[in-house]
Write a protein that binds this DNA or RNA. Structure first.
Lengths: 340, 340
DNA sequence: AATGATAGCGCAAACGTTTGTCTTATTTGT
DNA sequence: ACAAATAAGACAAACGTTTGCGCTATCATT
């Protein structure tokens, strides 16, 4: 039963019309008679006609596909992001082609090249951790393929990007803790090179100053995200003369490690010591002592916005509007207090 | 700097050859002179020529793309599976188009239809939880698009599928627990409709019989995977006259819910009660009391095998070999004991 | 009755590539 | 020197669709 795929020609032959008439009839073109249109549409339905996408794409010189390149689908942040992109794509009747760089610059280059050859109409990218050189990225743009970065974005000004700013969320977190009576608030931050870590430290200090609480630099520890370093940071903090009663941790994984350490030190979570973290992974729903609150970074929204910008750029290039557009959208992280 | 994309025509015009000569030269066709070939290849390189994929695909009537439809990328099981498929696809110079059904039959139909219209060359599918009717799936095959199911597979014989059998893993799990001194082993299973749940129950009972342990049906509870039902199941089990000292849970999420419940009931995990679960998600590395062991179901291998079968089918259909092929690969789940 | 408008449809080109066939010029064999 | 063989490249068709243009018949207007 190898069902033959119906083409316009097939329909045209059966009804003794020309291919162009059939095509127009299917599009309800006014210059085709009603009877003809009806006939064509009826037969098309019977034969289950569907336009051959490759033919269409070929003719229109576009693929109706946007490419997405991100480090790793396994991180919930990114698989959630995909959903944002897919939703926008679906609205625009586009498909999404996904590539994972696995944080490897070489793979990233390969994927980008493959996507260029596939002629994706646009790209949404979260660059790999180690990408410092952006030439292979910019190269794509010169082929008229708009490219929008999200979350992990290059430090360039003449590009379109969507990223998050955790300053406001951090402020909210500190104020939340102060309102709950905490005066000594610790931080387990990541490496200072990361932009977000700078933001965290600065916002933390500003928030304290605003509330007239003296800043104690010994309350700021760092980790490289490994469990070992996190425990070390906890050790430092807990061994202080006046240890903190609350701690901000760079992300949920670190939070969980830290919480575990605190429990081993016989501290009662949410009583002797509280935790507030970043990212708000669903994983925290599954642990006994999740952080009190998280600064959410909205992967869905970030990615969605990035995809929307891609489509905006696509519409612009159709109109050949002259002036280039460089959007730099910042999505503010917000504190989400976990319901007990 | 709108870099124009190079075509064969462009090269032909510049060198004053015909398009066909250029095409052949690039393919090192013997009937093209060496000088000409060299000239063409040189210019092609300079102009950064890359064949227009859509034109190729259109001409060849194939897309070099396989579609993957699965319930949800957020589940690590599936994002891991994607990697298996991508690796095989990459080897065969294919792209992967991903669609998520979100366990919704309607969306599944839409995606399948879209992929058919996109003319994907083959499909790898893990069907949605609620898919009972397989017509929309089989329909695709009649368009000569090979389709291979994995993990969640229809109960049909004339299809290609890769799934896992957890019987052996379950047996191993039960024996492992018995060796560790457990005699009353409970089960929190999923809905009985699911094939894997049947397998679990049967293997569980067989393993007990083999070890001459009497089967007590009250030790088998069920959940619909929600936290609420899981807690209910735990309540039943713990309220038994002789409650279990170990419990098999259908998956890691359920395990974590169950463990949490047990802790609230003041039970010492791994002392008063042990847990063994299925799937072995990385999430369990981040909780204080993970299950003792998991039955691993190898998403990467399952998906990889499924993709390989797709390509085998594609090769067959090129040779128009007559007899159809129906592979039913079963990958055995294995017990993985978590290192403390 | 002659002219113009209009409705309804067909023709053909175009997108980029591959490939079977045809053409031309050169070389080979005798 | 002439036929035959070969080498090197051109021509054209095809894949399915859309779309500008052209054609014909019908109808309305004067």
């Amino acid at each position: 039963m190898p069902n033959k795929i119906t083409t316009l020609k097939e329909i045209a032959q059966r009804l003794n019309f020309s291919v162009s008439t059939v095509s127009r009839a299917l599009h309800n073109h006014p210059s085709i008679g009603l009877r003809t249109t009806a006939q064509v549409q009826k037969l098309a339905k019977e034969l289950n006609y569907e336009p051959n996408q490759s033919a269409l794409l070929f003719k229109q010189q576009k693929t109706n596909t946007i490419g997405v390149i991100l480090p790793n689908l396994k991180e919930e942040f990114f698989s959630e992001a995909i959903n944002g992109i897919e939703d926008v794509a679906k609205q625009n009747k586009y498909s999404v082609l996904i590539g994972q760089s696995h944080d490897d610059v070489e793979q990233e280059k390969q994927i980008i090249n493959a996507m260029k050859n596939q002629r994706v109409d646009g790209l949404v990218i979260s660059i790999s951790k180690h990408t410092k050189n952006y030439e292979h990225l910019i190269a794509v743009e010169s082929y008229n393929i708009p490219i929008v970065f999200f979350d992990r974005v290059p430090e360039l000004s003449n590009i379109n990007k969507v990223s998050s700013d955790i300053s406001e969320g951090t402020r909210q977190a500190v104020e939340f803790l102060i309102q709950n009576g905490h005066k000594r608030i610790g931080v387990i931050n990541g490496p200072a090179e990361m932009k977000s870590c700078m933001e965290r430290t600065n916002a933390y200090m500003e928030a304290l100053q605003k509330k007239r609480i003296k800043i104690d630099l010994s309350l700021i520890a760092t980790t490289d995200l490994t469990q070992e370093k996190t425990c070390q940071a906890m050790e430092e903090l807990l061994n202080l003369k006046h240890p903190p009663t609350a701690i901000l941790t760079i992300n949920d994984y670190v939070a969980l490690d830290a919480i575990q350490y605190a429990r081993k030190a016989k501290l009662k979570i949410n009583k002797d010591i509280c935790f507030v973290s970043y990212a708000n992974l669903p994983i925290t729903n599954y642990v006994e002592f999740p952080p009190l609150a998280s600064v959410e970074q909205f992967p869905y929204q970030q990615a969605k916005k990035a995809a929307e910008i891609v489509f905006e750029l696509l519409k612009r290039q159709k109109k050949t509007e002259g002036k280039p557009m460089f959007k730099n959208i910042i999505i503010e992280g917000k504190l989400v207090i976990h319901k007990k």
